[in-house]
Amino acid sequence: MLRYILKRLMIMLVTLWIIVTLTFILMVSIPGSPFNSERGTNEAVQANLEAHYNLDEPYIIQYLLYLKSIVTFDFGPSIKQPSQTVNDMLGRGFPISFELGIMTIIVAVISGVTLGVFAALKHNNVIDYLAMGFAVLGISIPNFVLATLLIQQLAVNLEIFPVARWLSPAHMILPITALATGPMAIIARLTRSTMLEVLTQDYIKMARAKGLSPWKIIIKHALKNALLPVVTIMGTLLASILTGTFVIEKIFAVPGMGKYFVESINQRDYPVIMGTTVFYSSFLIIMLFLVDIAYGILDPRIKIHKKGGE
C-alpha cells in the first residue's frame, strides 16, 4: 500500500508540474498584459509595474519564480487587486465552490443511482422509459442552457427561487440542479445498464435461492457490483463538474473560485491564474487518486494494498 501511494504521489507531482508548465506557456503566449487597457497606460508606469512584478525578467526566470511560488504555496498579491493575496481569494472562494461541487456530486450520485436502479428493476416498464427519456434529455442539454431555463421559469416567471447569488439553501437549489442534471443522467444510465447485467448473474440467483428478501438482494448483492463501473467514471464526472462550476458560478453570480479564475484570465492577472490553476488541478488530481483508492476498497479483486497496483 505504502509503495503504491508513493508511486502515485510521484505521478501526481509530475502531472501537476506538466499542468503548471503548460499553463505558464499559455499564459505568456496569450497577447496582452495585466496593465493593458483600452485607454492605454503610460509607458513608463507600465515598465515600472512590470519590473515590480518581475515581468521584465526573461521567461525562464519568471517560470522559476512561479515554480517557487507553487512550492511555497505563496502566490503573492493579485496584480489587479493588490490589497488581496491570491491565497486570500482562494480561501474565500474555495469553500463556496466546494459547497457547490460537493452538493452537486451528492445530488447527482444519489438521484442518478436511485433512478438507474428503479429503471433496471422496472425494466421495459413505463418507469424505465420515463427515467431513461429524462436521462437522455439531461445528457443532451448543456448545463448553461438548463441554468438559463431554470432561472427564466422558476426564478423569474414563477418566482419560486431566487435568481442568483449564494446566500441561503433556497439560493443553492437552482445552481445545483443545473450542474447536477448532466452527471446524474450519466450515472442513471450507467447504473441501469450495469444493474440489469448484475441482476442476471448467478450470485443473484444464489442469493434468491438462500431465501433473502428482494431488497436485501438488491442492496447487498446487486448494488455494490453495479456501482463499480459508476465509481470508475466518477473521475471524469468530477472533472466535468469542476469545469461546470466556472460557468454556473458565473451565471448565478456565485462568489466562488470560478469567478476569480475566469476574471483572472480576462485580466491577465498572472498570479491569480497560476494560483487558481494549481489549486484546481491539485484538487482534481487528489480527488482522482481518492476515486482509485475507493475502487480498490470496493472491489476486492483489485489488490492495491498488496502489490503496487498490478
Binding site: 444464489m206 431465501g211 457490483n225 463499480l228 472491489d299
Partner: peptide, 22 residues
C-alpha cells in the same frame, strides 16, 4: 422465501459465478 435455503437449497453449475465477488 422462508422455505428457500431452509428446507430446500440449490447449487448451481458454475462456482466461478455463483459467489458474489465483492
Amino acid at each position: 422465501r422462508s422455505i428457500r435455503g431452509v428446507d430446500i437449497s440449490m447449487i448451481f453449475q458454475d462456482p466461478m459465478t455463483a459467489l458474489n465477488p465483492t
